[in-house]
Nucleic acid binder design. Structure first.
Length: 259
DNA sequence: ATGACAATCAGAGATTGA
């Protein structure tokens, strides 16, 4: 089972590029962030015609997550538990019924800038809620994963210019600590389980020729429960997508599971 | 570097992103 997570930066703006990518790369499951669309305006029929079931959790203008799957999905829920007043569309769950059932959680973690400030407080509070959900996933002792745009640069090796991000919400110590607290509950970060060292990124800013200078950061991640990590065949970043026509500023990150 | 770049909503330019 091949699963990709991809922050597409707007389904309207990315429709053709994303549709072409889906045809060519053909994930069994695509976990999307920043669809920037209400559910009614997501072009679901276009992707259903390609053989995908489509589940969205959108809102007007910003954020929004989705799961597209060639395999049957069950138990779809949306919204991260823990704050009934949180109206930002950043979380979707489903169980994918392959050879083995895999619980898939798609997330778009808040950016948090400027830090410090209320947006940073929201990010850290959201991560606390994520930790609570993560504990329950581990307690289930089932194959499960949480994937998406974490807006976290885990370590200095995950940025081409780590000093430029030192005070940014993506790399501040409180952000990294919150991420590691979740990871250290017992998750395996799929890409790092396969590839060590620096130089691999999943985001390049549109500005200042960041892609051409390979001035990137690695902020899109798969966290696997132990039962899911046991199924991990491979994980990789499809970085060449960043050089195509009308690209997102993120690229797809993949796992291949024996499931 | 108060920058750049891109998307959204709106129908200009502020807001958001990372």
């Amino acid at each position: 089972m091949k699963i990709a997570t991809f922050n597409i930066n707007g389904i309207k703006a990315r429709f053709q590029a994303f549709s072409d990518w889906l045809d060519e790369s053909a994930p069994d499951v695509a976990i999307l962030q920043e669809i920037k669309s209400v559910d009614e305006n997501f072009p679901r029929e276009h992707f259903e015609d390609k053989g995908y079931s489509v589940h969205t959790h959108g809102q007007k203008s910003f954020n929004g997550v989705a799961i597209l799957s060639k395999l049957p999905l069950e138990d779809i829920t949306t919204g991260l538990p823990g704050d009934d007043d949180d109206e930002q569309a950043r979380w979707i769950e489903a169980t994918v019924m392959g050879e083995k059932a895999i619980k898939i959680c798609g997330l778009y973690l808040p950016n948090g800038n400027p830090a410090p400030g209320p947006k940073y407080d929201y990010k850290l509070a959201w991560m606390q809620r994520l930790q609570e959900r993560a504990k329950l996933l581990l307690a289930s002792e089932e194959p499960a994963l949480m994937a998406g745009d974490y807006n976290i640069i885990p370590q200095d090796e995950d940025a081409a210019r780590p000093d430029a991000w030192r005070d940014d919400a993506l790399a501040r110590p409180e952000s990294r600590d919150a991420y590691r607290r979740i990871l250290n509950l017992g998750f395996t970060e799929a890409f790092r389980a396969r590839t060590q060292g620096g130089g691999d990124y999943s985001f390049w800013d549109y500005q200042a020729g960041a892609w051409n200078r390979n001035d990137g950061i690695r902020i899109d991640h798969f966290l696997l429960t132990p039962q899911c990590a046991d199924l991990l065949n491979d994980s990789w970043i499809e970085s060449d997508v960043r050089g195509r026509e009308k690209p997102s500023d993120h690229v797809p990150v993949w796992v291949d599971l024996a499931a």
